[in-house]
Design a protein around this nucleic acid. Sequence first.
DNA 1: CAGTATTTTTTCGAGGCTCGAAAAAAAGCC
DNA 2: GGCTTTTTTTCGAGCCTCGAAAAAATACTG
Lengths: 412, 412
Amino acid sequence: MSVGIRHDDLRRRNRAMVLSAVRRTGQPSRTEIAATTGLSHSTISAISSDLIQEGILAESKPSETASLKRGRPQVGLALKPEAAAVVTVVLSLNFLSVAVIDYAGQVIAEEQRRLDTLTMPRDELIGECTAIVRRRLDDPDLDVGSVARIAMGIQGITDSHARAMLWSPITPLTDIPFADILEKEFGIPATMENDCNMMAVALQWRDPERYRDNFIAILLSHGIGMGLVLKGELFTGTHSSGGEFGHMIHRPGGALCRCGRRGCVEAYAGNYAIWRSAMKMSEDAEPVDVGDADMRALAAKARETDGAEREAYRRAGEALGFGLGSLFALIDPAPVAMVGVSAAAFDLIEPALREAIAQTAGGQHSKSISFDTEPNELPLIREGCAIRALTFVDQEIFASGVQARAGGKNVA
Amino acid sequence: MSVGIRHDDLRRRNRAMVLSAVRRTGQPSRTEIAATTGLSHSTISAISSDLIQEGILAESKPSETASLKRGRPQVGLALKPEAAAVVTVVLSLNFLSVAVIDYAGQVIAEEQRRLDTLTMPRDELIGECTAIVRRRLDDPDLDVGSVARIAMGIQGITDSHARAMLWSPITPLTDIPFADILEKEFGIPATMENDCNMMAVALQWRDPERYRDNFIAILLSHGIGMGLVLKGELFTGTHSSGGEFGHMIHRPGGALCRCGRRGCVEAYAGNYAIWRSAMKMSEDAEPVDVGDADMRALAAKARETDGAEREAYRRAGEALGFGLGSLFALIDPAPVAMVGVSAAAFDLIEPALREAIAQTAGGQHSKSISFDTEPNELPLIREGCAIRALTFVDQEIFASGVQARAGGKNVA
DNA sequence: CAGTATTTTTTCGAGGCTCGAAAAAAAGCC
DNA sequence: GGCTTTTTTTCGAGCCTCGAAAAAATACTG
């Protein structure tokens, strides 16, 4: 069961709170931290002094507005970039990208590579992933604190403990324990994250005003994915990354989905489904990959003339609307971010979506449900992975101050 | 943001842990508590000694098996029944029931009453609820510790903070802030809970083996409701009690639902929907109340002959199956408890349900999804309310030992 | 039946942590 | 240069948990 809380947990948690405050706020003063955490000035002083000695935080130069107030000026605390580093690995259709990020969140190296993920055999795919990470880690130009965490993101389903890819549209392979593979290869803790979950994490980071406690990130791309944040926490399934919004049932026994089943939301709203419908192909037609350029052309045509193209987007909107309606019946309405290439065609989707959602219980306040769009998902995924990894370093490594301290007594 | 953890929180949390261990386990010894909480024997000794002095716990007589082991016998700790009491109020269709429950969880008084909830005006409904509680509290026969909490449960939607009934099928009235009303009337903290959520709480309590971290309780009655536990926590919507499984969309634009919309799961699987279908009425026919006896007769007939009745249950199963499939796409499969009068007809529902669920992404392991049935929901709801209220007393009142202690120095 | 072994519970001192108050530090203001 | 204001550090007090040892309560053993 839940375990009692010990005396040393206290310090650990409060250190974690300080680190989290610094990461969120940028350069808060000790006084500001005391205010947001509710801890006393003495405690914050003690903790930050420790963290500075351990090389995790640093006092930032007085900088900026040379203080207009009188009294002793606040001195900002900042994350020390060289305290650690993390690596992000994002694997998507035919594309692999890696970045090394310092403790303060700055990208200090990256590499990208095209591969044929759909046909690659298992060993080769794994090999490419480890090789690209190794190249970055071995790069002699890179002077970086020890890498403390690797976060890999992938399109597809991962397990709920963020250890393995279970299924992915980008490869016929299944059940690849990437986290274990990376940990074994590099001796660095690693996780295997779901792409849409990372999108949600990044959105929360980018715009905490809008995306705070409850919101939904929906990927409109070849497939339909979702990242869900409820009560400030990333939602996952009981076994898998969960949130397979695209495979909720829109019409029982309906159009053929890429997953082999029928009537899923994705079978109406995925790129291939929109394409299939616009080309007046049968709903049973085998899903095909459609390039981003083709999708943009399709959207342009739909805007131009009222034909099968526009109707295809309308149907996609309807499927998304009823799907969202069912989702909202479960969790209540929340702000939505539409991400991915088809989010750029959201103008074509929105009317039917709103009409559908208004017919559902969850859409009672259809008007008040707000949508935002972001056509490019890859930067979001990388950013989410970076934040995930850095937060792990904050909370799980640096919070438990079992650091060096071997320096000696040259302390003030 | 999240607030720092202070020094006094420590004791409070550990006291809460001890109380929770005693409530769950029954009569654990100090040693057992130390083992399950991970706290040291010294700490448990200190805390339990405090709790005993404060009149919250009591040492139980050595009792039972006069110890077969050698060594000093363990002495069990038990909740002291007279330490406090709670009141549960369950309001359902034409029925109001109240119970007074002691701190150890025993029912010590109850009262039930029939009312015409559907036609009652607002003041009268509220008046009946407060009057029945007042009668129990004023009962001179009742010698009970001070009542520390009232938990009211109702069929329908409540807000996510458990303060008010927002909408209910048992009355045309809406937005009744029962928690505030009861608090104001009796000066006792109160909550307004959703019936299905309380069913889930009770199931978790009754059978923690099966219903532990992830499970679903579905009410099959006039309407279709759901209580959902994920990662050990009761799931609620962002604004409301949420989990309106019955109003997920099964067939866009389909059969008329009691909520006024079309195609909801409930419009196929609610009692009125099964009845409507069995009677070969139109899907647009206005929903009517069907008595439990009629439903049982209907089920009997469906078992007897393969006619419209059996087909009606088949359709209900299909709707529930596709709904569960969509739900499982979001949260992954989990054990299900079917509760309510139509759960007694689950044999008629199950085949079509399983067939439908197998056609969905969430039903990949359809065979492994297990169902249990419980035809009577009212006892579950009351039990859930009681546990809710008692847990509140444990965690929020007794954990922060701002108790009497006025006694003096007559301590050992 | 007295002594010994075993297990549970309590006691006691040590070590940490947070807090409030006061002191120290670092500015601007007059 | 002295005074005010604000931030940060220092210091002692008060709790809390922990480990070790003592005390308590029983069964076993010869």
